[in-house]
């Protein structure tokens, strides 16, 4: 068994002391794996991600990332994590390369190192021609790729991806999947949320299905299909979370 990178036990998150957005969730994530959080909107996936990357404090429960508590040592944890948030949070006042350079500054990465890394990342994510472009000149797929590139500027051991391909066309989505698979093969641990079952089936070694703040099923994609005796992950998902609209 690989070493555990994230372990969480009985995590609860309440907003304003009201209903729990995350309600007693436990899981552990091994190094080098791709771990997926699936669930309808409002299941608590993003809230959990924010706790992992030390943004949101939990209400109760215990959590360690790299063996440290996000509440106590956020800086040293964040130094080793890359975060690709759901929303477009690129800096629109800066160019593509400046976005990477500025982000690297927050991690105290020396300038000469940044130049090499930025060049390699832009190459890897096929953004080389856009080096000096402004952010609003990029397509949706390019922006997504740049957000992931930015998350990799500190060469993180753990990459957190909150809905990495939502809103992209199939070509753009497949391009990102290919890159994520490549990263995984390089030994980067991936944690992602998604509501694309195809994405989860292709990328995840292990996943949990969440609903209303709770984990309702866990296993590898193949195990889940087998266990529920259905054709694919989408059917497992619908079987467990129902067909009612959630918004």
């Amino acid at each position: 068994m690989n070493p555990v990178i994230i372990s969480a036990s009985q995590i609860v998150k309440k907003f304003n002391g009201l209903t729990a957005a995350v309600d007693g969730v436990s899981f552990s994530i091994e190094k080098g794996k791709c771990f997926g959080f699936l669930g309808p909107n409002g299941a608590g996936k993003t809230t959990l991600m924010r706790m992992i990357y030390c943004f949101s404090p939990r209400s109760s429960g215990t959590m360690t990332v790299f063996g440290r508590d996000p509440l106590r040592e956020p800086r040293s944890i964040k130094q080793r994590i890359g975060v690709a948030p759901q929303e477009d949070s690129l800096d629109p006042d800066l160019t593509v390369i400046q976005n990477l350079e500025m982000y690297a500054r927050y991690f105290d990465i020396p300038k000469t190192v940044v130049q090499q890394r930025a060049e390699r990342l832009l190459d890897f994510f096929q953004l080389k021609e856009k080096v000096r472009s402004k952010i609003d000149k990029l397509s949706g797929g390019m922006k997504r790729r740049l957000i992931i590139a930015r998350a990799l500027i500190n060469e993180p051991e753990l990459l957190v991806l909150d809905e990495p391909t939502t809103g992209l066309d199939p070509q753009a989505r497949h391009a990102i999947w290919a890159k994520l698979e490549e990263l995984k093969s390089q030994g980067v641990t991936l944690v992602l949320t998604t509501h694309y079952m195809e994405e989860a089936a292709r990328l995840c070694d292990e996943l949990v299905i969440m609903d209303l703040g709770k984990i309702i099923e866990k296993g590898s994609p193949a195990e889940l299909v087998e266990r529920h005796q259905v054709k694919n992950l989408e059917e497992v998902f619908l079987k467990l979370t129902g067909k009612d609209l959630r918004e």
């Binding site: 990357y53 956020p74 964040k78 948030p85 949070s89 690129l90 927050y106 991690f107 105290d108 500190n154």
Partner: peptide, 9 residues
């Protein structure tokens, strides 16, 4: 939000 995801608080 994006800066606070780095070691900057």
């Amino acid at each position: 939000q994006s800066i606070a995801a780095t070691p900057v608080s």
